[in-house]
Design a protein around this nucleic acid. Structure first.
Length: 173
DNA sequence: TCCAATATTATGC
DNA sequence: GCATAATATTGGA
């Protein structure tokens, strides 16, 4: 694996208030690089007093709009730029596939693995999904286990169920 | 370089 | 249904 590690780049953390709580978006100079579910930590104000560059403010507006749509189960048409350079090649390949899953549709871990060309990499796919830095916008919640079973979710299974129900996806479990 | 851990899946009991 | 083996990738010792 060839991951070039640079000195810590500058980043900005900005909160997004939704009806489901306050999310926390993280930006690098290249784009959106992280999104956190509401928690005690995201309640604290992060971007207080720091100057926000104009492009990042624009990305953030887009992110906030997208997040509202995603939480409402509506399809997202336009994304802010993503900075996925923190992930490995394999992970970025998986995340790319996830972005292509239409709203209301689901894939199994095995199907994602087949898209990658290696049917046996199902387990690695699950691992890559768990490492997804931008849940909801990169719809890792649309990846289920076989037979429409829920599988797992890094942000908590309640979130996964809630998101899928709002998109009209029916689960077995 | 090796080893344990994983958001899996297919198979056998 | 539950236990188990097979399998790819990752991160840490």
């Amino acid at each position: 694996m060839n991951i070039q590690r640079e000195a810590r780049e500058q980043s900005w953390d900005l909160p997004i208030q939704t009806r489901d709580g306050q999310f926390l978006a993280q930006y690098s100079p290249k784009g959106l690089c992280g999104l956190n579910f509401p928690s005690q930590e995201t309640q604290t104000r992060m971007a207080n007093g720091h100057p926000i560059p104009q492009p990042i403010q624009r990305w953030h507006d887009q992110t906030a709009t997208d997040l509202e749509n995603a939480l409402a189960g509506r399809p997202i048409t336009e994304f802010p730029p993503f900075d996925l350079s923190a992930g490995t090649d394999f992970q970025q390949r998986v995340w790319q596939i996830l972005k292509n899953i239409a709203c209301g549709k689901t894939l199994s871990y095995g199907e994602v693995a087949e898209e990658l060309g290696d049917r046996k990499a199902v387990r690695a796919v699950g691992r890559a999904c768990g490492a997804n830095p931008i849940p909801v916008l990169i719809p890792c919640h649309r990846v289920l286990a076989s037979k429409q079973k829920i599988g797992g979710f890094s942000g908590g299974l309640d979130w996964k169920r809630k998101l899928l129900v709002r998109e009209g996806v029916l689960l077995l479990e």
